[in-house]
């Protein structure tokens, strides 16, 4: 049976969309990730226009993040002050990102920009994760404890002005790095439809040196509002949010997550990261291949004068 997407103005198989939502939800349950960075390329591979894929994925991410924020909030694992400081940068970044996306779309370069940012980001994140998890797996095989050499204190962070006290994170640091981090993730949300946790969580742990128990909750807090803002701004500037596509993806996703969490709890961390790294690299190579391979049709048609 077909599902007609009112904004993308095309018919899709609703089972395929539900399946994609389920699959990505499953993987995000297994790996504890948002899944936006897998969903956007999948939708593009299926033939959804990149603009619609990005904006609609943002709405799916905000929907699937909400229950996570709620759970962490109840456990008092959200540093509200840190979250709001990051959010200030995040909302600014989203606004600029959506504006940038609209400009690129009018130039006919939005498709290329989305692909290129995915290849660069997924390629580097995947490579780092593969390297790290392969070392961890080898260390486990040799009978050593994984993890180990922690990097030294980042002195530069303590020399920055505008210091603020973050009680819940037990930190007294400048507000500039969190605002900057939020800003970068906001731009990524707008252009790629991702939540950005894959970038945010490592920086919060290793650079901001937040305690790990509040990192996930706080990053989810930021992701929730930034992706919600990205959705609304895309709806206003680019008219690319497809409500039918979003609901089908969310419906598939909520089931997928439940099963994914059960499977994920049976796998070891380094194995999980190893498989995730392979998955990320596979998506990046497919996108890269499409950028360099001779296209089936050199010409593309867009209705109207975007």
């Amino acid at each position: 049976m077909d599902l007609y997407l009112p904004i993308a103005q095309m018919s899709v198989q609703w089972l395929v969309i539900l399946g994609m939502g389920f699959g990505v939800g499953f993987l995000s349950g297994v790996f504890g990730i948002g899944g936006g960075f897998l969903l956007t390329p999948l939708l593009i591979f299926y033939g959804i226009p990149p603009g619609v894929a990005v904006a609609t994925t943002a709405s799916q991410v905000s929907a699937s993040t909400f229950s996570g924020v709620l759970a962490h909030w109840r456990k008092r694992a959200v540093d509200l002050k840190m979250g709001c400081v990051m959010l200030a940068g995040g909302l600014l970044g989203t606004g600029i990102g959506v504006y940038l996306f609209a400009v690129l779309r009018r130039m006919g370069q939005s498709e290329f920009s989305v692909s290129a940012s995915y290849v660069i980001l997924l390629g580097s994140v995947g490579a780092i994760m593969l390297n790290e998890s392969a070392r961890a797996l080898m260390a486990v095989n040799e009978g050593k404890r994984p993890g180990g050499g922690r990097p030294g204190r980042h002195r530069w962070i303590h020399r920055l002005p505008c210091k603020m006290r973050f009680r819940q994170s037990r930190l007294y640091i400048s507000a500039i790095p969190p605002v900057l981090l939020g800003f970068v993730v906001g731009v990524l949300s707008a252009i790629m439809g991702v939540g950005g946790a894959f970038l945010m969580v490592p920086v919060m742990i290793y650079v901001l040196r937040m305690p790990t128990n509040v990192v996930v909750g706080t990053s989810m807090f930021q992701v929730l509002f930034v992706t919600a803002a990205a959705t609304i701004l895309h709806a206003i500037d680019n008219h690319t949010v497809d409500i039918a596509l979003a609901f089908a993806l969310i419906a598939g996703g909520v089931f997928g997550v439940q099963y994914g969490v059960r499977v994920g709890s049976r796998l070891r961390g380094e194995q999980l990261r190893f498989f995730l790294a392979l998955l990320v690299l596979a998506v990046a190579s497919r996108l890269f291949y499409e950028m360099v391979a001779v296209p089936a049709d050199l010409y593309s048609v867009t209705m109207g004068t975007p």
Partner: peptide, 11 residues
């Protein structure tokens, strides 16, 4: 509406 209904569905 898209965001709020989506969040409601997820919740």
């Amino acid at each position: 509406v898209t965001v709020l209904l989506g969040i409601a569905m997820g919740w």
